[in-house]
């Protein structure tokens, strides 16, 4: 299936993603690793979702498939009305370009570009981007926009990564251990920015973490074990990130 034009068609509160029977098998030589063993999940638009689970439980695999970085071995994944598993590489790239903001544990900034240019990398190709300066201001780095990654602290680098992710005003923010390499103060600053994006832009936020404390800010918490969803917890009173401690 090819898409004509941007992938849209998600109304507020409608499910952003609907996964049905998602399986992922990695073949390494003779052995097969079952990373996902049939995941059924619906993620409503505008939700903050935290995925918890030990290493190898399948949460990163799910995140990568949702983000269009990887394909499931079987099952279906709808984004709005678009079946993501049917898209070819170019359409998946368009999907990421238009809808997905990624934040990683190790920031993945381009060392040869300044903070502002790292953000521009995304705003150059997005459809409705915000001004890079505004995105940096949102994460509190307006003053450091001319600095190269090597001249920024880890926390500052991660905030640039957040600014880069939200600058395109994505439908969904996918965060893989976003605070994993940060001290708690800096980590909370990053989480606050994520919550702010969710609140002010209506962005769906999916966070993978080992840190159970972060679960407090989620609308829902999903626990993974052995490639399956072990438990779903609904949080009626999500905490403000500034109240989280670890």
């Amino acid at each position: 299936m090819h898409m004509d034009g941007p992938i849209t068609g998600i109304s507020p509160q409608a499910p952003a993603f609907v996964a049905t029977g998602l399986c992922k098998i990695y073949k390494t030589g003779e052995t097969e690793v079952h990373a996902l063993r049939g995941v059924d999940l619906s993620i409503p638009s505008g939700e903050i979702l935290v995925l918890l689970g030990p290493s190898g439980s399948g949460k990163s695999t799910l995140l990568n498939i949702i983000g269009g970085l990887d394909r499931p071995s079987s099952g279906s994944l709808l984004f709005g009305e678009t079946e993501l598993t049917q898209l070819d590489d170019a359409d998946l790239t368009r999907f990421r370009r238009a809808q997905v903001g990624f934040i990683f544990q190790f920031y993945n900034l381009l060392p040869s570009l300044t903070a502002e240019e790292n953000v521009r990398l995304v705003t150059d190709i997005a459809e409705h981007p915000m001004d890079p300066a505004k995105a940096l201001a949102l994460v509190g780095l307006a003053e450091r926009s001319d600095h190269y990654p090597a001249q920024l602290s880890g926390g500052e680098q991660q905030r640039v990564a957040v600014a880069r992710a939200i600058a395109k005003q994505p439908g969904v923010l996918l965060c893989d251990e976003p605070t994993g390499a940060l001290d708690s103060g800096t980590g909370i600053h990053v989480l606050k920015t994520l919550a702010q994006a969710n609140r002010e832009l209506g962005t769906t936020v999916v966070i993978i973490t080992h840190n159970a404390g972060i679960a407090a800010m989620a609308h829902r918490v999903i626990r993974f074990l052995d490639g399956r969803i072990a438990r779903i917890e609904v949080n009626d009173q999500p905490a403000d990130p500034s109240d989280i401690r670890w």
Partner: peptide, 14 residues
């Protein structure tokens, strides 16, 4: 390779 993969993730075409 690392930077190129990052760009791909950000939505740049091959």
């Amino acid at each position: 390779a690392h930077e190129l993969a990052t760009l791909r993730v950000l939505g740049y075409f091959r």
